[in-house]
Amino acid sequence: MWKKALSAALLATGLAASPAAWAEAPAPYQITPELVAAAKAEGKVVFYTATDVAVAEKLAEHFKSKYPGIAVQVERAGSERVFQRIGQEYSTGIYNADVIETSDAVHFEYFKRQGWLEPMVPQEVADKWPADERDPDGNFAAYRAHLSVIAYRTDLMKDADAPKTWEDLLDPRFKDKMVKAHPGYSGTVMTSTFVLSQLLGWDYFEKLGKQNIMQVQSSTEPPKKLAQGERALEVDGNEYNVFRLIDEGKPIKIVYPDEGTPLAVGNAAVLKQAPNPNAAKLFYAFLFSLDAQQLNSDFGGLRSFHPDVKEKADRTPLSKIKILHSDPEKLEPEIPTIKANYEKYFGT
């Protein structure tokens, strides 16, 4: 969309001759002692994130131990809330955030269109990231990814009874047993609702809505409701939260349904109006470092696009899972429909 608008503008002004200046990302940068010193002088970086608060705080702690003297203010909310907050703040001229990260890829297309992002490419991203997982203009890159998974409590549900497909969830035996997050709050669920409505149609959700599902907000919450024993089965929720709970010894198992599992990509970017530009640049590079990505994988259970990250052996590698990809450009115009239909079928 950006490209369409841009080329239209360029044509209109007769500047189409120099599109290369726009389409090219800035030269990659490395973490230099000068950058670290400048970041230390600012002393602080503000990180708006949609990653689970415990994971995000762990990452912040690691950053602080690596670069002492720079505080990290972690502002965690659901992707759609982060988006709402930055929208409210920017429309009223408040520039609090340095680095932003959500799990809804649509947001970054929007930020880019608005011109809110400062293009920059850390060396690590330039060297290691697949071309699909970063913005060609260098505005943002995929900092993390995770699946939205079905999962169940093995002590409350026998393996044989567990669902194998999305259609299985419509079975009456799962009535009153399920918990689900909300697309109006969670970028992950917005993405998965879009992908599944394309794959299975809205009548699937209409039937699912009759299963008396417990409705929570964040996609971090269904796994926690499983851990509490409040429900036996989650319709959607972050795979990484489930990994973390399994690591803690909770009796939970993941189902990768035959039709496929939706993937949510969490992009990160530095804001143009960042109050602490150097600390933001340093933190941004840190986010993509092998250290941070490995920590995200080990402690956070997140998937990484860094090819050198080693996943724990008990996790099913992405290559063995049928993945449902979402196209943010197609998703964006559907958002009002998704919200309206969702309210119609699920009540909120």
């Binding site: 709402q84 109006g184 417990m214 009540g347 909120t348």
Partner: peptide, 22 residues
């Protein structure tokens, strides 16, 4: 308590109208 049960009251509904785009 009401959102998990699948219904809005007016205050939560007004709050949801602030979701982006507000």
């Amino acid at each position: 308590l009401a959102l998990p049960a699948g219904f809005h009251v007016i205050t939560t509904k007004i709050w949801s109208l602030f979701q982006f785009p507000p």
